[in-house]
Design a binder for these strands. Structure first.
Lengths: 240, 240
DNA sequence: CGTCAATTTGAGTCCAATCAACTCCCGTGG
DNA sequence: CCACGGGAGTTGATTGGACTCAAATTGACG
């Protein structure tokens, strides 16, 4: 999952086998902390997240890290390139994953339906990554963090209804490495949002959005937008 | 094209119809400055660059811009998502483009061979974009510029042989918006590389790489790698 | 309750952005 | 041919936001 604002396309995420009758028959369970694969491994399976959260990362020689994406339910991870994975992939919270053997996707024996679905998933991925470029290249720290929270709440509410609550299964340093910041800056920015009354931090992994409009405004670069007239919580819930 | 160091996969770029006999039969010419499409336009064609250079951009409401990628010969541009383009696309230098109608890629009438090629192209695109994340999120200005030059020279030399020369068809502000910097910083960083004897700037659009190893070192974050053994004064003299 | 890691907060620094001036390059027209 | 104009690029001075280093606090877990 790429944290972006214009992510309508993510709504289309669905099981690759949605056409079939059986509801994802052979999903396997993975424990938190487990590693799915490393960068450079030969690709044998592609995974779709049924539940839980994954983390895709890349490393630079000197240890600098970039979190490429988080894998939320509905997402596909493990896109191959030249037969290899190009990120590491770890399980953040206990997850159920649907694995697809690469052999089912290529060659004459390949399932053309699956092949088509995979292309659609890859094209959505490209679009989402393009959004994320804007964030990494052109947004300030507070815009990045606000964007991140906006998409998380949007993503959450899609399943559980509009609850204005974000669950952050990942650590602060995961967030930092995703947004191109440091853990200190992420922490400071969250504190600032809390002090301004825009969010409340229930615990490290649970954040309540008190002023969704203000948060959205900040994510778009509109400074000082707390309570422009009155917070239209209903409208925002609909919008996000 | 995404400016990254580990871009071996780009070597695989090839015409979508490589299997066919005819050498890209219906490539059309486009003038510099032409617009191929805008973000949000309905996708009807996907393009492969035969010659020339394209620029893919995104805009934020307030005018901030991110150059998503440059389209060099061999690259595919116009990946659709939900039937729409998700970037603007403009022609930087007079280009010949091979257009593929979207109808040829989907539905029952679609060419399955083309479909497969498109998926491969999309997967390469994803991998290249992942590399670029690291650059935008975690690299310093000099690392970004050095990386950019490294990949440009690598990309050039692929066709014309190793000539240690980079042609920059785009403006400084295009480079800046691609790397997440300002034009001033790009300009300053190039000057710094020139003063250190690592590159020479023939003219605004042509750069000679005098110390490829030092440039590569800088792109990877190794500081102070000029002249590892002895300074090649001849190279410098030639350049200046 | 104690330990240790993760997170938060604080103080100071630095890199890149900003604001501003100047140069260079070209094309245009007197 | 040269003066002029204007945009792109470069360079300089200053500012500011995020980083770094360091300390305090919280929280998870035995």
């Amino acid at each position: 999952m790429y944290v972006t604002i214009s992510s309508e396309q993510a709504n289309n995420a669905r099981p690759l086998r949605s056409a079939s009758k059986q509801p994802t028959p052979i999903a396997k369970a993975f424990k938190a902390g487990a590693n799915l694969y490393f960068e450079g491994d030969r690709v044998e399976r592609i995974y779709q997240v049924c539940s839980g959260v994954l983390r895709l990362t890349r490393l630079l020689e000197d240890g600098r890290r970039q979190v490429i994406a988080f894998g939320f339910p509905g997402d596909i991870v493990g896109f191959p390139c030249d037969g290899r994975y190009h990120t590491d992939c770890d399980v953040l919270t206990e997850a159920r994953l649907q694995a697809y053997h690469l052999s089912a996707l290529e060659g004459e024996s390949g399932n053309p339906e699956l092949h088509k679905e995979l292309l659609q998933a890859a094209l959505r991925e490209i679009s989402a990554m393009q959004d994320h470029f804007m964030m990494l290249g052109r947004k300030s720290a507070i815009e990045k963090v606000a964007s991140f929270l906006c998409v998380l709440t949007e993503r959450m509410s899609r399943d559980t209804g509009p609850r204005n609550q974000a669950f952050l299964p990942m650590s602060r340093s995961d967030i930092a490495d995703f947004l191109g910041l440091t853990t200190e800056t992420v922490s400071r920015t969250l504190s600032q949002l809390r002090k301004r009354g825009i969010i409340a931090i229930n615990n490290i992994h649970t954040i309540m959005v008190l002023q969704p409009q203000a948060l959205f405004g900040l994510s778009q670069g509109h400074e000082g937008m707390d309570c422009p007239t009155k917070p239209d919580l209903h409208g925002l819930a609909r919008a996000c």
